[in-house]
Nucleic acid binder design. Structure first.
Lengths: 222, 222
DNA sequence: GAATCAAAAATTATCTATAATTTGAAAACA
DNA sequence: TGTTTTCAAATTATAGATAATTTTTGATTC
């Protein structure tokens, strides 16, 4: 295994920290102390600072000049904001992707939906769900748009994990199937409409906490 | 004048370079040599590297690992992409801003439109146009969305300046006035519809070059 | 045209200064 | 006498400068 392939130390640290922030291992508002992180990764603080800037660009960290960086906080308002941005951007991407969608792509997307429906924890569900969306949108060929959507997906995943920390129960994603059916039958506008509603929906759902209690929590579904 | 107010050297350098990239002083594809830039700003290359990361996040620079940074290139495809992203995101912002729009805000937006129509160079036109859009969208109260729109505006300005390098002739912006009229009369959906078409439009326009020739160029108008 | 070597530039490490936060002691007040 | 507040010193951490190390690139030679 190559010690360094084609990426820099900064981007490696950034990916590692992003993973921790999204998974909830680093909690909102927590300080990111550059010297500690540098020591942990066996690097100096210079690449660590660059990693912080990358995280800042993804909305996962915030900079307070002369006071360092913190893990970005989020509230229901921002969950809504991210969902609505995703909704309009994913619809835009889908409209451009439709002419380039092939039967093979739709089959792979259906496989991703099946994987999501049968997944036994929230992490594998999220991975499968993300794969579904990426498969349908990537053919749009708009790199800047896709990068924005990726960042919003990361934020969504963070919200998702913060709600479903402990338990998870499988459910069938009827929206995904309806989108695929519409696309297969050439009803692109309808597919876009379902996608917009699907991604933009935010609602209260019963969530089981680690202690076994059940509480209401806001959550995304797409 | 304070040597440092509340911002860091990195962000100052970033702003200065962004200005140069947008104005065209730094050309697409040009290498950003950190040592030279550090020397110019009387700093070391550590803050310069952070500035590069900030520019990268705005889409104004691209990183080539182990080979440094370059000014981001752009083509007609990306101009289109930015325009379409702006169109859907600005419509989303406007819909949320509408309930919070006041007569005072609409008056200031109208003043910005007048300023745009009477501006004698492309830079002041761009500033006034940007002010118009910001005035209408800021009340949406969605910081992440507004930040994305700002970045897209910067990209748009870059395309604009690259087309109209030399001459500029004033013209009346009927779309802006139609949007204001619709908003004043409570026809929010129509305002959103006009805005979407206005921002998303890309077309060929005669452009006078520095040598006095006239050529066709693609350009944004919103 | 390929290979080797040198120069230039990027990346990272180490070191320093400055700003922010915390700690602790002293003073004021109840 | 106990509690709270204020102020200053000490500690800690960030931001930046300087130095060392790779990596890339360009030139020259075989």
């Amino acid at each position: 295994m190559d010690k360094q392939r084609d990426d820099t130390i900064a981007s490696r640290i950034s990916r590692a920290l992003a993973e921790r922030i999204i998974s909830g291992a680093l909690t909102p508002g927590e300080r990111l102390r550059q010297d500690h992180i540098a020591e942990e990764f066996g690097a100096s603080h210079v690449p660590v600072r660059e990693a912080f800037r990358l995280l800042e660009a993804q909305g996962l960290a915030v900079s307070e000049p002369r006071r360092g960086f913190r893990v970005a906080a989020f509230d229901l308002k921002e969950v809504r904001e991210v969902a609505e941005m995703r909704a309009v951007l994913e619809v835009l991407a889908l409209r451009h992707a439709i002419p380039h969608l092939t039967a093979a792509i739709l089959d792979r997307a259906e496989a991703a939906t099946v994987a999501a429906d049968t997944s036994r924890d929230v992490r594998s569900w999220e991975a499968a769900n993300r794969a579904f969306h990426r498969l349908l949108l990537t053919p749009c060929g708009m790199p800047r748009l896709l990068a924005s959507i990726d960042d919003l997906h990361a934020a969504s995943a963070r919200f998702l994990f913060s709600a479903w920390r402990s338990s998870w129960e499988a459910r069938t994603d009827h929206d995904h199937r309806a989108i695929l059916a519409a696309l297969r039958e050439g009803r692109g506008d309808e597919a876009a409409k379902i996608l917009e509603r699907h991604v933009g929906w935010i609602g209260k759902t019963p969530v089981k906490t680690a202690t076994g209690e059940t509480r209401e929590a806001f959550s995304i579904v797409g």
